[in-house]
Design a protein around this nucleic acid. Structure first.
Length: 874
RNA sequence: GCGGGUGUGGCGGAACCGGUAGACGCGACGGACUCAAAAUCCGUUUCUGGUGACAGAGUGUCGGUUCGAGUCCGACCACCCGCACCA
């Protein structure tokens, strides 16, 4: 018996060097084979990576290697999402220039990634902070500008009044600036926007075509786009109020016109023109509006703040009942950029309106009666009723369903006139807002615009692109260094030549990641966005990344391809045909008695669930598994795993046990189990070489039961693992390989026990070794190369074909059916595969156990599900 | 606050379209090999009762549909993710 261990530390670098030398993962655009484009979401170069980062790259790599074996021309690229806030924070905190910080991180992360043995085409590597990348992004911006897909408008930012700087949402903590601690204000700035709303309907409709996306992601996008059909309704101001308001009517948007008779107030956004008009002469309202401006701009901050209102004293006339008037409030929860910036409140049927009405003592009139409720007794307490029902308390709507009432109200108000306008207008609204891309920061793609006092914003002429970031900047003061970079900023207007200033805002980093997959398609720097290459490679066949990008990144990318298509730059609308969202790797956390975080390598587990610090023996507090993070020290560096067990072990472990879409826990015992299995595969292949037939031996004419069982197991393995990998069920693929190894082990033991190995078994052993080596190839590629070479091949396994299963070996001739009596399993029966339901029924009724259960009586019912189950109802 | 998800043995999890719950692995226990150990191999391992054959219970909780529910429906509980300037 060969007792040699598989030496990963020797084999892994050796095979990686050979793959590199032969350039086998380099992809050519003119390769005639069918294409397969697989990519993982590119990383932000934050520093060192930990093993938690590796999971999605390994999953993508398994698929890439598998598809290569299936004969595809695979594109599997990698790049760096290299612009962003952390680089500037490093500059502020440690005085390192964002550029050198970023490129140093890229260098070390690249080294770590290469360690994982990923079959990437590094020739197509990109970094979004590189001018050769962002020059094209600036061209795209100008294309969008020409097509009206980019424009400028006012929009609010988080403003830190002490540091005099704009804050990101994550820099606002409990409504205060993270560095200054000052209460944050919302302040308006003129900013650039991409008109994603122009595609709102199309982005919504096309979700139905994305059948290889998770349903939950499509649902999240659908809700985010938030299409609603409603009615815009004009509320005329009461006679005495028109003068004060300066306008004859207020327009509100509602999706529930059926509840109009339940209206008890109108609420205006603090930013509504009428609010602004009134506040100009009423200091107490101005103060209320100013108060509404404190706190962050995030939806979470706005929606969780206390609901507050201000009674303007004005009233409006009810559109369907001129005898009634309704008070007008200003409320902090009404958003100016959704609908018309004004709503009517129907407290009985909307929880937020109800809370507001209770707080300010407004009437609550139910107008929708739940099915079966008594109209005399039904009342709304602390919970609004938003279910189905019948209209009442609503004059001409009484007795109608909600849908019918909506229709009646719309028809009637469309006929009414307020001045020249119809009082009601049907309107489709989207929750989706245009995408604000301006960032008041240095480390991002410069927006190629020059602001001229007389010509306004002027595009930078295309022959002057890229507008490169100046290197000579300082981070010693808060604010955007580009505002202070005079030599860079002050330029003549391209139109009139007068002194002008560059746009100092840079682009949102989501812009960078909205088209990088298109850049990968091109194999030349000269044409970073190459229409023909995009037509060849897109859509991405399989995109793999975290669920945290379910909405923004993926929606922005879907918008980008459409916008680029409108500019005639590409021909593809949907960028990602297949999407997979993988879970994170989590790890236990450890704290010593003083509450300091400890690294896993400082801790030793005792059998009892307790753990101690290795050097002191002090007991350690073991916390639940959490996302790996530097701050909690629950990280495992890939180098350490590679040095101790080898990369293939780490890859195998990452694919094992946990379904890939779920969070997976990294454990020491798990990695040791993976290491044992890697060794087991190696040993079994060695033994099969020793006991089996030589390479190229002739196939025997027949196989006995033992040899056939092994052949069934091996051929079944290749069939099942292919299916598992296609469906990205890597944990099940791993289980199938384990199952095979158990069968392989028995066959090897049988061969070893025989005086002389029979020819059919010898052939089957050899065949099994050849099959399992190729099947594990995508998952443990270095081990597989080593086995492949040991089997006598002088080709690379990475370039071998997937083993084709013989169909005859995949079907069983007999089937074991479970027998249930009254839904409980009581027995089994073995029947021929092609037995009819009637034959099965007869056989079942003849069984002792069934006869006993029936006790001489005929069964009430008997259900035979062919090839599945039999249920006898006694 | 709004939107989305997850929940199965001691642990990670499997179970296809409603059809044998617990595949496979980890851990634990027992055995073989060994002078011994490591490594390896074999066996047992959901819970309760029983020496045993076996019986009963069991997929977060409560209820429903069905011949049959981890799977479908309703209500609830716990935890996780996103919310437009983190990436």
């Amino acid at each position: 018996m060969s007792t040699d261990r598989y030496n990963a530390r020797d084999a892994e670098p050796r095979w990686q060097a050979i793959w590199n030398e032969r350039g086998i993962f380099r992809t050519r655009n003119d390769d005639p084979r069918p294409k397969f484009f697989v990519m993982e979401m590119f990383p932000y170069p934050s520093g060192r990576i930990h093993i938690g980062h590796g999971r999605n790259y390994v999953m993508g790599d398994v698929l890439a290697r598998y598809k290569r074996m299936q004969g595809f021309n695979v594109l599997h690229p990698m790049g760096w999402d290299a612009f962003g806030l952390p680089a500037e924070n490093a500059a502020i905190e440690r005085g390192i220039h964002p550029k050198s910080w970023t490129y140093e991180n890229i260098a070390s992360m690249k080294e770590q990634l290469q360690l994982l043995g990923l079959s990437l085409d590094w020739n197509r590597e990109i970094a979004t902070c590189d001018p050769s990348y962002y020059v094209e992004q600036q061209r795209i911006f100008l294309d969008f500008l020409e097509k009206g897909l980019a424009y400028r408008k006012e929009s609010e930012v988080n403003w830190d009044p002490v540091d005099n700087t704009v804050l990101a949402n994550e820099q606002v903590i409990d409504g205060r600036g993270w560095r200054s601690g000052a209460v944050v204000e919302r302040r308006k700035l003129s900013q650039w926007f991409f008109r994603i709303t122009a595609f709102a309907q199309e982005l919504l409709d096309a979700l139905d075509t994305l059948d290889r996306w998770p349903d939950k992601v499509r649902l999240m996008q659908r809700n985010w786009i938030g299409r609603s059909e409603g009615l815009e309704v004009l509320f005329e101001l009461s006679k005495g109020a028109v003068a004060a308001a300066g306008v004859p009517a207020v327009k509100v948007y509602t999706t529930r016109p059926d509840t109009l008779f339940g209206a008890s107030f109108l609420a205006l956004s603090p930013d509504h023109p009428l609010t602004q008009h009134l506040a100009a002469t009423r200091p107490e309202l101005a103060a209320f509006v100013a108060d509404c401006k404190t706190g962050g701009t995030s939806a979470e901050a706005i929606e969780t703040q206390e609901k507050k209102g201000f009674d303007t004293g004005l009233t409006v006339v009810h559109p369907l009942d001129p005898a009634r008037t309704v008070p007008v409030y200003v409320a902090n929860f009404v958003l100016m950029d959704y609908g018309t910036g004004a709503i009517f409140g129907c407290p009985a049927h909307d929880q937020r309106d109800l809370d507001f009405a209770r707080k300010y003592g407004l009437t609550v009139t139910p107008v929708v009666l739940p099915p079966g409720a008594d109209p005399a007794a039904f009342a709304v307490g602390e919970e609004a009723y938003d279910g189905e029902g019948t209209l009442y308390n609503s004059q001409f709507l009484d007795g109608l369903s909600i849908e019918a009432a909506k229709e009646q109200v719309a028809r009637r108000l469309e006929r009414f006139r307020v001045g020249e306008q119809p009082q009601g207008m049907r309107k489709v609204n989207f929750r989706l807002r245009d995408w604000g891309i301006s960032r008041q920061r240095y480390w991002g793609c410069p927006i190629p615009i020059i602001h001229c006092p007389s010509c306004g914003p002027v595009p930078v002429p295309r022959d002057q692109l890229p507008v490169q970031l100046p290197d000579d900047v300082t981070f010693d003061r808060p604010g955007n260094p580009l505002d202070r970079a005079k030599a860079w900023r002050d330029v003549p207007c391209p139109k009139c030549g007068a002194p002008a200033k560059r746009e100092t805002d840079t682009m949102d980093t989501f812009v960078d990641s909205s088209w990088y997959y298109l850049r990968y398609a091109s194999d030349t720097v000269e044409r970073p966005l190459d229409k023909a290459a995009v037509a060849h490679w897109l859509p991405v066949d399989q995109y793999i990344g975290g669920i945290e990008h379910a909405i923004l990144h993926l929606l922005y990318s879907r918008f980008f391809t459409r916008a680029l298509k409108a500019c005639d730059r590409v021909n593809v609308a949907e960028p990602f045909a297949g999407l997979f969202t993988q879970g994170m790797i989590v790890h236990e956390t450890y704290k010593d008695q003083e509450g300091r975080w400890l690294f896993p390598e400082e801790v030793k587990h005792l059998g009892t669930g307790k753990a101690v610090k290795i050097d002191t023996g002090e007991e350690v507090v073991v916390g639940p598994p959490e996302k790996m993070s530097k701050s909690k020290r629950n990280v495992v560096p890939p180098e350490v795993v590679a040095d101790t067990y080898g990369v293939d072990t780490a890859r195998w472990f990452m694919l094992s046990d946990t379904p890939p879409e779920r969070d997976s826990e990294w454990t020491q015992s798990g990695i040791e189990g993976a290491w044992r299995f890697v060794q087991r595969v190696w040993r079994q292949v060695q033994e099969a070489i020793e006991l089996g037939a030589p390479k190229g031996a002739e196939k025997p004419a027949s196989f006995d039961a033992a040899a056939t069982a092994l052949r069934r197991a091996a051929h079944g393995l290749s069939h099942q693992v292919a299916d598992d990998v296609e469906r990205l069920r890597f944990n099940v693929a791993v289980a199938h390989v384990h199952e095979f190894a158990n069968a392989f082990g028995q066959a090897i033991a049988a061969a070893r026990a025989a005086a002389q190995v029979p020819a059919d078994l010898a052939f089957a052993l050899r065949e099994a070794a050849e099959i399992v080596t190729r099947v594990v190839g995508p998952m443990t590629p270095h081990l597989a190369e080593e086995c492949w070479a040991a089997l006598g091949h002088d080709t690379l396994l990475a370039e071998a074909a997937w083993p084709l299963a013989e169909p005859d070996l995949l079907v069983e001739n007999t089937i074991t059916l479970p027998i249930q009596i009254n839904g409980k399993k009581r027995d089994d029966i073995v029947v021929p595969r092609e037995a009819t339901a009637a034959e099965v029924e007869a056989a079942v009724l003849a069984m002792d156990s069934v006869r006993k259960a029936l006790d001489g009586k005929p069964p009430k019912r008997i259900i035979v599900v062919p090839q599945r189950i039999v249920n006898v109802v006694a």
